[in-house]
Design a protein around this nucleic acid. Structure first.
Lengths: 124, 124
DNA sequence: GTCCCAGCTTACCTAAAGGTCAGTACCTTA
DNA sequence: TAAGGTACTGACCTTTAGGTAAGCTGGGAC
């Protein structure tokens, strides 16, 4: 239980208010952003798959989240000109890089959530 | 650029809406939660240190965030009965476990933010 | 002819996150 | 006697995230 040295380049230990990393963190740690990135870490998926997997997401938020992640170069969109429409979403290389860090975090949250939130051990 | 296998135990690949991990994720990926956890990963710190380091945080949000993290058993509060008051905050063992996963994520965000958000390479 | 499908967009509204500011306690220093 | 430092709390208000529900496209099934 000793201090982990922080490998960040903030000279005085201050996280500056206007830092662009604040904005990026907001995108990738947003309620739905995390789930979409995690879902896509398993590979290309359709709009309707994502909607089903991120249970409870509205179409509006799915669209908005995907657009933000696409603008950030983390997700790529592949629309096929067929009827009915078919659009596949996948992670870019940078998106995979990120998801490699995100997956363990979510896995940890999943493992610890029952005990922390409900005070009960999770059933094995 | 191949799919990373997801080590999560969601049978059908669905992230259920009522899952307690949703709540826990909301706490630890909140705007200020991340910054506080990262700051504390460097070791025990006082209220006023945290306020200074998480630039832009209001006293209200600092109090609220610390309370949530304390309730979740990630942060411990040590109030010394001196005048003027002195309160030290530190990570619990579980908090350190989490911060070990969080630090690389924030470091990655810091490294990539300039390019992603502003479209400019960060100065070396 | 009209209903449905997937993948969206738009307008509108609510709830929750978060900011601002004032106040408090107690002792110390000027 | 007054001001200040530390760690808060509470009242009040604004901003933003997010939900709901409707509409749109264009062809294929009924």
């Amino acid at each position: 239980m000793q201090a982990t040295p922080l490998p960040l380049a903030f000279a005085d230990g201050v996280f500056p208010a206007g830092c662009p990393s604040r904005a990026l963190l907001d995108h990738i740690t947003s309620k739905w952003g995390v789930l979409i990135l995690i879902a896509l870490s398993e590979g290309e998926q359709r709009w309707s798959d994502l909607r089903r997997r991120a249970e409870g997401i509205s179409e509006k938020m799915l669209a908005q989240t995907l657009k933000t992640l696409e603008r950030d170069g983390l997700v790529s969109r592949n629309a096929q000109p067929v009827i009915p429409p078919r659009v596949d979403y996948s992670l870019t290389e940078r998106g995979y890089e990120l998801s490699a860090l995100l997956v363990p975090l979510v896995a940890w949250a999943f493992d610890n959530a029952d005990e922390i939130i409900n005070g009960t051990e999770k059933a094995k």
